[in-house]
Amino acid sequence: MPETSTARLLEVSDLAVHLPTRDGVVKAVDGISYTLNAGETLGIVGESGSGKSVSCLTVLGLINRDSAQISGRVIYDGSDLLEATESELRMVRGNEISMIFQDPFAGLHPLFSVGDQLVEAIRAHEDVKKRVARERVVELLHEVGIPQAAERFSSYPHEYSGGMQQRAMIAMALINNPRILIADEPTTALDVTVQAQILELIEKIKEELSIGVILVTHDLGVVRDVTQNVLVMYAGRIVEHGSTAAVFAEPKHPYTWGLMESIPLLEVETRDLRAIDGAPPSLIHLPTGCAFHPRCTQAFEGCDKARPELDQTEHHQAACHLARTDRDRIWQERRRRPADASR
């Protein structure tokens, strides 16, 4: 893992986001820490309700800061974004840290042309003439692979295909040369061949501009292909954190095992899918102890009492009460089962 040599862009520590609702407090994010370096793609993987999207929106102050209870620190460029005023945050958004979302069609304003929306993004941060901004927009649209960019400038979002819309969103995010790109499920709404195009584009951009990318997804395959490091989230907490290669080779948390064993693989003809029983817990009434214990095949006495913390000793961390040696042994056994052998 390239770590110390590269510049640290973002440092999130003990971030918690609690959202009061009529039924109780939703613990959407419950104490997560990670760092992002320049030139790194960090994957955040988890199912719906795991807190992966909320944690990213919080970084940019895009959740309602008046109603949410937010604690922890998000250090960017030496200052804490959680302490920043609205106008300070405004300077960061779309300029230093950009974000793209799952559904590009819903994310583009239907009544303004794509070009105008990009011009607006430039002029939100820089006092330039419309004509100059327009030239930059056309150039960037061309670079992200939109054919006939000059003509497409005045088109409206509904006149773009899904892949084009996401390219336009990416262009909008990059137009001010940010240092961090947060991509929240950028390919989930897209077809698989278009997904390949978009992932290739994000990869290329990251290499060329050496920015840091946070890629939020539920798709382990995407994580495996394009990230260097990965966080696995469950019920608002990080359950496993490490280099992507290590996590895929030697996953250490039973939830990660479950995720990997529950997805069908393209290369394997037949294999029993081991579903994780039950459903993710309510974020209002989290299980005591380890939030995963009611669904965990390895749970033992004590898992429902204390909440496990991430191991502090290892490079590749997991938050589980099982002894490390046990985890390694159990994974080796699970992996050796004939049905799973071909991976």
Binding site: R93, G94, M99, F101, G107, E120, M172
Partner: peptide, 16 residues
Amino acid sequence: EDYIRTARAKGLSERR
């Protein structure tokens, strides 16, 4: 709507 979130994410003032 999502496009309002996009507008905020690109750094526009709330007024705009």
